[in-house]
Structures are given as C-alpha cells and as structure tokens.
Design a binder for these strands. Structure first.
Lengths: 103, 103
DNA sequence: GTGAGTAGTCATAAAATTCTGACTTATTGC
DNA sequence: GCAATAAGTCAGAATTTTATGACTACTCAC
C-alpha cells in the first residue's frame, strides 16, 4: 500500500506547535519563572507546591529539546545547574507580553 | 485558622491563563478551524480523525465559557449550529500570527 | 569516610483526560 | 407516522499524564 503517508505530526501551524510545547501541568510555570531568573531544579520543587521530580525532569528535558530553555552547569561554591531561556524562548516573551494588553 | 487564603487559581499571568484556555487535545485545532470559517459540530467530527463527540462537546463548552468562541443557531434549510470566534478570540489571532514570523 | 546538598532516574501507583457506544431531542422531507 | 440529519448527553472503559518513594551519582566540607 503506497499510502499517501499522512505525516503523523502534521504541524502546519506554528502557533499550534508552540501551544503544544507549553502544554502540560508545569511548563507554563517553568517558562514564566525562567523569564525572571535562572531556574534551578530543587528551587522549583521547593517553591512550586505539588510538582514532582519526575514531571519537572521530563518537562525540562522536553523544553530543552524544543529549544525553549538551555541547561548550564555552574561550577561554583555549591555546584549546580541553571536553566535559562534560549534566544528562541526570549523571542516568545515579547509576544506573550502583548497578551497582557488584551481584555 | 485565618489562613492567608492562597487563591486556588492564582492566575496572575494572562499568558498563562490563555495557555490554559487552549490546552487539551483538540482546542487548538478547534480555534484554528474557527479562524477560517464557522465551525460545525458534525463537520468537525467528520474531518478531524480521532476526536470524540464527548471531548468536542466539552471543549466547545469550555471555550464558550472562556469567551473564545460563541454559539449561534442558524435557522435555515438544515437547521444547525455555528461556532465562531468572539471579538476576544479574534484579538488573539493577530498575536498568534506574529508567532509565525519567529524561528 | 561520613554527612549534606544538588540533580537526577526508575518502577509503580494514582489521577486526569479522552474515547466508545448506546441513547436523547429537535427539525425536516416524504 | 417513519426515516434521516444535526447536536448533543451519559456511564463506563481505555489511555495518557502526573505523583510517590526508593535509590543513584557527583561534589564539597569536616
């Protein structure tokens, strides 16, 4: 059968793709916090009630793959990791800010 | 205990609220189709593979409550119902269009 | 080398979301 | 009245997402 392969992930609409990248219980919050300051794994868990290590870990990895955030190892007093917005992520911020004007 | 009531739905960020309104398996697609032409219940079910009556019904009701779409009874040849974007919904379209410019 | 802090992974359990299929109500054509 | 179309609702099943709790690995201070 030379089925006319319907692409499994037929994302024609960029906005739709973006919504998918930020869907899930914690991704929007992760993104928002990362706009304010570098995000750390344990800090997020402590401050955001209800979130689990597992979900956070998965969300961070997916957002990294989607190039919304990036991971940096900080070799300092307490060695740790920081997640910050990529330039792609930063670009979204200005679009989101416009939303705050609307009704 | 006069707990300093942490509002259960502390949606301070409008962008976050919007993402929530468009989260779920079919809402983005519903929204996108509604930007193109009035949306009908059975047409959606026929054209979008995998969607169930139940989910569609729920999604439409929620989006109506969120004032993204509105429901109109069309008293014509085959009496039917049309879902169209509200002005609030329309406003979002221009914001989404900007997304298409980004990487 | 022991203990504390940071950042995870893994298997399993619980919870939330979505689908299935039967049934309902209203309108229209014959 | 009878069948067809449109737009649903409802209970229960299946699927997907998220949470739990135990455990690992690395670094640093003592």
């Amino acid at each position: 059968m030379t089925t006319h392969e319907i692409p499994e992930d037929a994302e024609i609409c960029p906005a739709q793709a973006l919504l998918k990248m930020l869907s899930g219980k914690w991704k929007a919050e992760i993104f928002r916090l990362a706009t304010e300051r570098p995000l750390r794994f344990s800090t997020f868990l402590r401050s955001v009630e209800g979130a689990s290590k597992q979900s956070l870990s998965t969300a961070l990895r997916e957002m990294e793959n989607d190039e919304l955030i990036q991971k940096t190892v900080i070799r300092e007093k307490p060695l740790h990791i920081e997640y910050t917005l990529t330039s792609k992520g930063q670009q979204l911020v200005s679009v989101f800010r416009q939303l705050e004007g609307l009704s």
